[in-house]
């Protein structure tokens, strides 16, 4: 089996730095920052770590809620395709800064794409 992008970045220890990089980008981006403005920054970072681990193919031990439930409240607040595009874009920038190649960034984006309908709370496009 080929090594995952998660392992290539440096696994668990590197995730902490990756999460900070990603979270800083998200909070600086007017398109999506308001979804993340919770004062509980530690809680938010733990969740973003779950996000990054999942999309980079890290150990499949995500035990949180399913993607639909995790984002249901955000859908009520107007979460749409544009927001998903923005998150995938910021994810790409983060990985690039960590030295991940374009091809692999595409693979990660594809994993994020695959849950787009769940995140947006709609039945998968037929």
């Amino acid at each position: 089996m080929s090594t995952s992008i998660y392992e290539k970045i440096g696994g668990e220890p590197a995730m902490a730095a990756a999460v900070e990089l990603f979270y800083r980008k998200v909070l600086s981006d007017d398109r999506v920052a308001h979804f993340f403005s919770d004062v509980d920054m530690d809680g938010q970072m733990a969740k973003q770590k779950g996000f990054l681990t999942m999309v980079t193919g890290g150990p499949n031990n995500y035990t949180g809620r399913n993607m639909r439930d995790a984002h249901a409240k955000l859908v009520v607040k107007g979460l749409d395709d544009g927001h998903v595009d923005a998150i995938i874009e910021l994810l790409g920038e983060t990985l690039k800064e960590l030295g991940v190649g374009d091809e692999e960034i595409q693979q990660v984006a594809a994993i994020a794409e695959s849950v787009r309908d769940d995140v947006l709370g709609r039945s998968s496009a037929s």
Binding site: A16, A17, E20, R24, L27, S28, V39, M41, D42, M45
Partner: peptide, 16 residues
């Protein structure tokens, strides 16, 4: 406390 924590993080400080 919460405001400065966030501002310092955004300015580049690690949360740790």
């Amino acid at each position: 406390v919460n405001g400065l924590r966030r501002q310092l993080f955004m300015a580049g400080a690690s949360m740790r």
